[in-house]
Design a protein around this nucleic acid. Sequence first.
DNA 1: ATTATCTATAGATCTATAGATAATGC
DNA 2: ATTATCTATAGATCTATAGATAATGC
Lengths: 213, 213
Amino acid sequence: MGAARTGAGRRVGRPRAAQRPDSGLEPREELLAAAAELFTTLGYAATSTRAVAERAGMRQASMYHYVSGKEELLALLLESTVTPSLAYARDLLADDTTPAERRLWELCRADVGVLCGGAHNLGVLYLLPEVRDERFAGFHAVRAELKGAYRQLIAATAAGGALPEGALDLRTDLVFGLIEGVILVRRSDPERSVSVSVFAEATADAALRVVGV
Amino acid sequence: MGAARTGAGRRVGRPRAAQRPDSGLEPREELLAAAAELFTTLGYAATSTRAVAERAGMRQASMYHYVSGKEELLALLLESTVTPSLAYARDLLADDTTPAERRLWELCRADVGVLCGGAHNLGVLYLLPEVRDERFAGFHAVRAELKGAYRQLIAATAAGGALPEGALDLRTDLVFGLIEGVILVRRSDPERSVSVSVFAEATADAALRVVGV
DNA sequence: ATTATCTATAGATCTATAGATAATGC
DNA sequence: ATTATCTATAGATCTATAGATAATGC
């Protein structure tokens, strides 16, 4: 069993026409990175399979050796952004020694970090119109569960406990909107001076004020 | 000089192949309405000129009699959503008899109303990746001026007056993010029970809490 | 004559598949 | 023999223009 060879050593298969990019990534990862950059800057519909493949250092048709098409790339990218936040949210829900206010703050901070951190502002993917499609139901299910975690934590705060159902839903929408709204702010001003972590903490502070703590 | 005839009366020009829609709109308005619906649901790149034209009751090529192409339609729609908010913001800035807190609240309420009201959740247009393009610089200029009005009003509040520049920018970003975030909330849950006006007021309340009033 | 439409189409895409090719592996 | 790539292309778009046509206006 040969170990996966990541270096530039001898490879099986016909050599590439173009130079292999020196990122050190596996071809599939290379495709995902290329798609992330292009989908976030140009959008999904405006990004051709050719553009993705060439940026990953291969010809358009070769892409199909690794993925079934553009759709799979977007689905993978979407899930990769929301899954870490959800895992963290589950941990926080299970932690009954920390006050709910603090746990909510942590979730907000972490979520903003994921949405705005990373090389390509991956949160921008949530804005793509194609994402609403049924095909990405998996992503939506995870995102809905994450929103549910926000709701539970808000309900567990001192300010949230007394709220009737409808008011709790409204608070949850507002907090969730604030968190996702940072995607838009960052998109319209990518050169911002303040670091992601400062921004994430300020957003978490603001979220607690929205809840009424 | 013949008055514009909006009814179904005799018209100059070759008759349409399909029935004229009974909306009572002029053809150009009909095209804008069709584009609004399609751009907000499918996105810009995924909407063909054919789809827009047929929905407006004419053949694809006839669209070019009224507009220069898809791009002009998007530019017109974008400006139509942001211009009313800006006009209102200017009025509020000029009003020195009302407390800044109250004026900020009003601006938030009105802006959310425009973004989420209307038939097609036009705020969704802000999310389209194509909108970042240089071609829509006019829209961005107006939106930036609106954001400037938010900033001025925040600075004029009791809580905002003491803030150093950087902190003021951060508050402005958070409030602006909260307002634009409602677009995302509404998009993911279009069947929401609460009315737009209740939601707009709750968002305005939350914005004041973010500012720290 | 003017106008609002139509039909037809050139030219430019873009996606996904078929089948060839050039390496290594055994 | 297996694998990773390539080239080539069919079929399906989509946009914008050219030029014809069928009304009203005078």
